[in-house]
Amino acid sequence: MSATASLRHEFSKGFLKENPVFALLLGLCPALAVTTSAINGLGMGLATMAVLLGSNLVISIIKNFIPDKVRIPCYIVIIATFVTIIDLSMGAYLPDLHEALGIFIPLIVVNCVVLGRAEAFASRNSTFSSLVDAISMGLGFSFALTVLGAIREVLGFGTLFDLQIIPEAFPGISVFILPPGAFLALGFLVAGARVLTARLERAAKSRQGFMTAAEAAAAAAAANKETRGAEA
């Protein structure tokens, strides 16, 4: 695989195929807890992405200095530092969102997505690809939380990003705002993501087959022209 293609792969993997929530089922606690509205989901996703960027950056820089035996505590301290920075900044600049997300901001420390990427990716890859990985995973996580939050908000309140979508005459299905709705919505989303991934893979495979057939035809035509030119 060429450098740009692998970079594109690193970047796009986080959305569906290796989406931390839909495919890997990581970081489910915040995904279920804060997604009562799309904006909360987005805020939580972006906060996690900021921590992920910081921790992946630092860990990939100092990976050669961390002794192998104590690497996990080292990662946790680095992550906790960035979480504290994000926690305090959000408290200062976005007090409403900070209030809504509650203890799930400090709990980013134990979010398996962040520690998982540190251990599985940043500790053995270059700084640049670790940053790309953090952006990809962070965007994938934000995407998942926003979708889940949007679905729960539309079904529960009839609004999307605080805009009225469903007329107020129709009462919302309040169970989707309550805890059970989070489990139900996520369960069906994971199932849907699986079906979609399987379909996309099948489509990609058949397209690949088609491409080679088209290429073969083009090559044959070119060869035909060449022989004719030679005759003339």
């Binding site: 089922l25 059970p180 709705g181 989070a182 489990f183 139900l184 996520l186 369960g187 069906f188 994971v190 199932a191 699986r194």
Partner: peptide, 9 residues
């Protein structure tokens, strides 16, 4: 996982 999540719901 999906059916487990629905059951948890």
């Amino acid at each position: 996982a999906p059916i487990a999540l629905v059951t948890a719901g």
